[in-house]
Design a protein around this nucleic acid. Structure first.
Lengths: 162, 162
DNA sequence: TATTGTTATACTCTATAACTATA
DNA sequence: TATAGTTATAGAGTATAACAATA
């Protein structure tokens, strides 16, 4: 009577969870010297990119609640990693830009996390590692381009109706 | 002087996070009628497999703390989805087995989550969807085969030393 | 002595709501 | 009226430590 397989090994959610948790756990120590761990690293990466984004833009891209973003930026600003700058175009928003100290810290973090990526992916042969990264990044870019909240809610409606 | 790229789009952690969050968010409504959401589904899947596992085995495989597992199983047992059974081989452990009600609920959940997978992966062409799933599952199987905690700690030591 | 599972507690992370200031 | 950001509060989720039963 079973119409669908009930095997954990074939469940996308399980596989995603295992790999994601492995990444988060492994990155914990590599990012221990900045606030927010691996998310602090992502915020710092966004802060070092041009043109600078405001809090809402970065929070949305990284899947961080705007209230959480406030606290995280407070800690990172105190640590001298980035600054909130006034946006000449809109006085409500604050542009997030990395300091020189933040940029050099980012250099070191990038090196550590690149090594970490290699370890995480070490279970696959080299060609497959590149293929997996490319596929994940294309998929993530597609998901992130949509309005994150509205799109998934629509999907859910479809699924539970159909 | 930048030796490594600082682009979010090329960061594995970012891509993993975006896809994983999209999955969790979309599965929230699909698994709303069982305790624990998408993790409850995974526990139920494990409970329906043979031979049955004990709490520790399942918790380790699913990345759930053993104390959290106790509460989750309490709720799922109250909902009549599974049972704790005495293990004749070791009277300390309890085997987790799905009830008939749990198995039929699992059938319906599998159907919903299969549809949901299709939606999540819709940003990629069909061939790439299959390739991504296969790669993720191979990688997850490799990561999960190792002792989850010890292995990642060793990795971290290597990375921070090297 | 080590392990499985339970319980109580404390902690972290996240979300909700109310507020200010700008648009 | 709507939006960006802040703050305080409450809530969910998670981890820590102590315990009983068993190996």
């Amino acid at each position: 009577m079973r119409t669908t397989s009930a095997d954990l090994d074939s469940d996308l959610g399980w596989a995603l969870g295992v790999v994601f948790r492995a990444y988060v756990k492994a990155s914990r120590s590599a990012t221990a010297d900045i606030p927010g761990g691996h998310r602090g690293f992502q915020v710092l990466t966004a802060a070092a990119s041009t043109p600078p984004g405001n809090q809402r833009t970065i929070a949305q891209r990284l899947g961080i609640d705007r209230t959480v973003m406030t606290y995280l930026l407070d800690d990172m600003e105190k640590a001298g990693l980035l600054e909130r700058q006034a946006d000449p175009a809109d006085r409500r928003t604050k542009l997030i830009v990395a300091t020189d100290h933040g940029r050099s810290a980012l250099d070191e973090l990038c090196r550590r996390l690149n090594r970490l990526e290699s370890h995480i992916l070490a279970g696959l042969p080299g060609d497959d590692q590149a293929a997996l990264k490319a596929l994940l990044q294309r998929l993530a870019a597609g998901i992130n381009k949509l309005d994150p909240i509205a799109s998934t809610c629509d999907v859910i409606e479809d699924i539970n109706a159909g």
